[in-house]
């Protein structure tokens, strides 16, 4: 009994600070923001309870809410498969037994070290409509380039393209997964006459499915929370309000930030944050449910 109590004491000694930290800096602010989402709170005056009014305004009247939802969902739907596909393709290439494999792995991982904001700034100069590198190159070929960064049609595709440079982390995870696939399975399949595609389709993909699932879930969560890329992109364009042109790059996270720290509508921003939390939770639960059909853990 004494041993049990001593263990318990040591448990609380070690876990206590982390739990206190979690409670004070995560759980309490989360619960507080849930309360704030039902209040009008502009920081300079105490919160005032207004019931569901923030949520009603978001769904019914806010001109930014639905555009930001649309932009974020389009980005997620396009960027995540593209990023995962690019990362998997590169991981497959870098898994081949070629000379200087380590060097090439490092080279392809390097862009991921840089923050997304840096890419946003650099690429915005490349894609500048008037005097940008791309349009200058196109002009040499007699082609009139588009307003890549300032047209609502092109701004989001450009951002998706820029975001793909962050493929390094999923690529490394895919590489780890590929290295765990037993070589004997490939040898056996090869002896049975399976081609490269068949080996990839029937051995590689099922055996790295947990890694694909992990990268997919993390990619979706990351895409739904995009902020720095869009914010830096807006700043690099000299936009007075982030998310332009005409809300074409107004990501949900950016909209939330603007409401909270641009205009100090903390109640509205809290409502936005809780809607995002609920959506991510729901999507993750669905992902886990669906994963039972295609993810193989080897048991």
């Amino acid at each position: 009994m004494n041993l049990r109590r001593a263990e318990s004491r040591w448990f609380w000694c070690f876990a206590g600070p982390a739990l206190v930290g979690f409670g004070a800096f995560n759980l309490w602010p989360m619960l507080y923001s849930l309360g704030l989402s039902f209040c009008r709170y502009e920081v300079v005056a105490p919160p005032q309870f207004i019931g569901w009014q923030n949520y009603a305004y978001l769904f019914g009247h806010d001109p930014s809410f639905w555009p930001s939802v649309r932009v974020t969902l389009v980005f997620t739907a396009v960027q995540v498969p593209l990023a995962l596909g690019a990362a998997l393709a590169l991981a497959l290439l870098l898994h081949q037994p070629v000379r200087g494999r380590g060097f090439w792995r490092a080279v392809y991982f390097l862009p991921s070290i840089l923050p997304q904001a840096v890419f946003a700034v650099v690429f915005s100069f490349i894609f500048q409509a008037d005097g940008g590198l791309l349009n200058q190159g196109l002009a040499l070929a007699g082609i009139q380039g588009a307003a890549w960064t300032t047209s609502p049609t092109w701004a989001l595709p450009v951002l998706i393209l820029v975001s793909l440079w962050g493929f390094g982390y999923p690529m490394v995870i895919f590489l780890g997964g590929l290295q765990n696939v037993p070589r004997e399975l490939y040898e056996a399949a090869h002896m049975d006459g399976a081609g490269a595609w068949a080996r990839f389709r029937h051995i590689t993909l099922p055996l790295i499915s947990p890694v694909i699932f992990f990268n997919g879930v993390m990619g979706v969560i990351g895409a739904l929370k995009v902020f720095d890329l869009a914010y830096a992109f807006s700043l690099a364009q000299g936009q007075m309000t982030p998310g332009g042109p005409a809300r074409a790059t107004l990501f949900y996270g950016l909209n939330l930030y603007q409401q909270a720290f641009g205009y100090f509508h903390m109640g509205l921003a809290s409502a936005l944050a809780w809607l995002l939390f609920a959506f991510i939770l729901l999507l993750t639960v669905i992902n886990f449910r669906l994963s039972r059909r295609w993810v193989h853990y080897g048991d």
Binding site: P63, P67, P152, T241, G244, P245, A246, Q258, G262
Partner: peptide
């Protein structure tokens, strides 16, 4: 300031873009 930037300006931008 908020109304101009957040609410009005995107509509003006869309007008300039021909939407």
């Amino acid at each position: 300031i908020e109304l101009m930037f957040q609410v009005v300006q995107p509509e003006v931008d869309r007008m300039l873009l021909g939407e």
